[in-house]
Design a protein around this nucleic acid. Sequence first.
DNA 1: TGGTTTGTTTAGCC
DNA 2: AGGCTAAACAAACC
Length: 263
Amino acid sequence: MPELPEVEGFRKYIAGTSLHQVISEVEVTDAKVLNYPTDEFIAALKGRKFISTDRVGKYMFALTDGGPQVMLHYGMTGSPKYYRDPAEMPRHARIIFHFDNGFHLAYNCPRKFGRVTLTPDLHEYCTANKIGPDAAKITQPDFLKRLGKRKVAIKAALLNQSILAGVGNWIADEVLYQAAIHPEMLVADLTPKELENIFSSMQYVIGTALELDAHMPSFPPDFLTHSRWTDKGRPDAPRLDLEIIEVGGRTTYFDPKRQVKRG
DNA sequence: TGGTTTGTTTAGCC
DNA sequence: AGGCTAAACAAACC
């Protein structure tokens, strides 16, 4: 389920478990998720250590001691798992880093929508792949400038990782609900005030999710998320009467009473 | 059984 | 050139 806050959790998890241990073996059980020649990937990492981590939007990086950086993108269903007992290996481990201390770090990815590759440098990677500034760090002026006067639905713009990186489907819906903006409103039709509200709401939603480690049941009761996934949210949250439409090719939940479309 | 899915890339059009 | 759209990708889950 990884959007920016979840990927930040994955980053912390890897930083807290997998650094400073010699990578004794690298096992690729499904090369589909590896955007790099398997044998070269293994050769480049074997004998090295991960020394730090970084993240831009939903893209996570594990830096090595003098070698290339590993880019990990989790797609829709990916997650990392650090374990010792082979019985704990996740069912859909596609790549496994074996450490010389007997532990293992698996890149688990049931649906294989995730991707892993090597890059000399994460900044270079982001430039080459047109990944915009991180949504948790972008400034308001930069946000407004990058949105510009696009003739596209605001929700589609928020999902566009080249404008800013890290906003996915549930965050986009939550941000627009908090800002009381209809998801189909064109960016060009929004007032400066509305765009500033969207920016503030985005900071609030992402900031809240980061503080709470993306743990949905702990989100504030007034979040739309609880009504969107009644099984994952908090039971005590008010149930909103949401409408479901498709915007920017994604299923979109919004509150038609609160988020009204202007012509 | 078939529809749905928290994401990205790419081809093609304008 | 750059913005935009729709389709493609894949497999688990309900």
